[in-house]
């Protein structure tokens, strides 16, 4: 991005965040309410109703086990979905004002991550404060994984957002796909519970690899990325580059289709 696009990006990102809470009484507290509700309902279903025993190696309560993985997922999911809709949502602007169109996608992704990670920080701080055995030494790796997820979300949002201008079905199809992806990632369960023959396949999903890494970093204190995470990060960058390419191919034609 050029410096002038950078100011525009900040302005849009700020607008995205403030838009979400404008006019609501609880304001930014809502950013915490939704994930906390999810956390409680999953926890109720899995520990009270289904009585799933956490596998031996996880020494923490299920709530903590779920919390460290849930926020990164929510950030990723929200970023992809909002980023994909960003160009069409800003159609009036695209048709009337010359500017670098990718800015709206970047702003949507950045705002989603900012809001969810704000909640993540609060929740981690709360858990540490209440004496949960989290390893803050792993925060560096968590940050690296989050950067990877942000890159992946940006790449997907650029690609899908550009296609969405031409084929409006993309957004409709995205919700069920994200719903399935949630269950295909080790968020509600550890990778160790997945049958042996499927684990190899799971490694092909960078979201699964990076979310599991976040959990291992915070719960087991692992500070350095493993080879599989390195590959996942490379895949994220590759998707980002591919997304940019598709976006730049299509963005000159947005005005014709919107």
């Amino acid at each position: 991005m050029t410096p002038s696009s950078w100011w525009l990006f900040l302005r849009f990102a700020q607008r995205e965040v403030s838009n979400r809470f404008a006019g609501s009484l609880l304001g930014s507290l809502w950013a915490l309410v939704h994930p906390l509700a999810l956390l409680l309902i999953y926890s109720f279903v899995f520990t009270t109703v289904l009585r799933v025993r956490p596998v031996a190696e996880t020494s923490v309560p299920f709530l903590v086990f779920l919390a460290v993985a849930l926020w990164p997922w929510l950030a990723f999911q929200e970023a992809v979905m909002r980023g994909t809709g960003a160009v069409v949502a800003n159609g009036a602007l695209v048709k009337k004002v010359p500017f670098a169109h990718e800015v709206v996608v970047h702003a949507a992704v950045a705002a989603s991550f900012a809001v969810q990670l704000g909640g993540y920080v609060v929740v981690i701080a709360f858990m540490v404060f209440t004496g949960q055995p989290l390893h803050l030494a792993g925060l560096g790796l968590v940050l690296l994984c989050l950067l990877g997820l942000a890159a992946l979300a940006t790449g997907l949002a650029l690609m899908l957002g550009a296609l969405q201008v031409f084929v409006r079905d993309i957004e409709q199809g995205l919700a069920p796909v994200m719903g399935m992806l949630f269950y295909l990632c080790p968020i509600l369960y550890p990778v160790a519970m997945v049958p042996e023959w499927m684990r190899g396949w799971m490694l092909l999903n960078p979201v699964a690899v990076l979310i599991e890494a976040c959990r291992e970093a915070l719960i087991e204190g692992r500070a350095w990325p493993a080879a599989s995470e390195g590959l996942a990060l490379l895949a994220c960058v590759a998707v980002l580059l591919a997304g940019r390419m598709v976006f730049h191919r299509l963005s000159p034609h947005f005005e014709e289709e919107l």
Binding site: T2, S4, S5, W7, L8, L10, R11, F12, R15, A92, L93, K96, V97, F99
Partner: peptide
């Protein structure tokens, strides 16, 4: 063109200036 109807005039000035790269 380029105005957001929900925003005030001042906020739209800020947005328009950002769109011009200021």
């Amino acid at each position: 063109a380029g105005f957001h109807p929900e925003y005030t005039g001042s906020e739209n000035i800020a947005l328009a200036c950002a769109l011009m790269g200021l």
